[in-house]
């Protein structure tokens, strides 16, 4: 099952857990299952249309999912999903 790394701002919703193992064959399913287990996480990640919020960056296998298939990005056993807030310039 994929592992989702939880950033600090969301850990109050995951009982402080920094990583959560969630079932799901694609990102959309994983986010739904994450929401089911830790209510509130999903609405922080997704907007009213069910798409990833503007300021949320999600990486699968170290790649921004916007370069993959977005929420339809397929996940394999052992994949890591990173949720990373946007960062200022450098």
């Amino acid at each position: 099952m994929p592992t989702v790394r939880i950033p600090t701002p969301l850990r109050k919703l995951t009982d402080g857990e920094a990583a959560v193992v969630v079932d799901g064959g694609d990102l959309r399913t994983v986010v739904a299952n994450l929401q089911a287990r830790h209510p509130g996480v999903g609405e922080r990640l997704l907007d009213d249309q069910g798409e990833l919020r503007r300021f949320v960056n999600v990486f699968v296998r170290d790649e921004d999912v916007r370069f993959l298939d977005g929420l339809d990005t397929e996940l394999a056993e052992g994949d890591t999903v990173s949720i990373v807030p946007a960062v200022a310039g450098g």
Binding site: V84, V87, A88
Partner: peptide, 30 residues
């Protein structure tokens, strides 16, 4: 690339508690 650096920095800021000027100090920095 820089965007990879940025992502790593974001995760380090989360785990190490350092003051990253453009991550967790961004509001002041900007």
């Amino acid at each position: 690339a820089y965007d990879d650096v940025n992502r790593l920095a974001s995760e380090v800021a989360d785990t190490h508690g350092w003051g990253f000027v453009n991550v967790n100090l961004r509001a002041y920095y900007a």
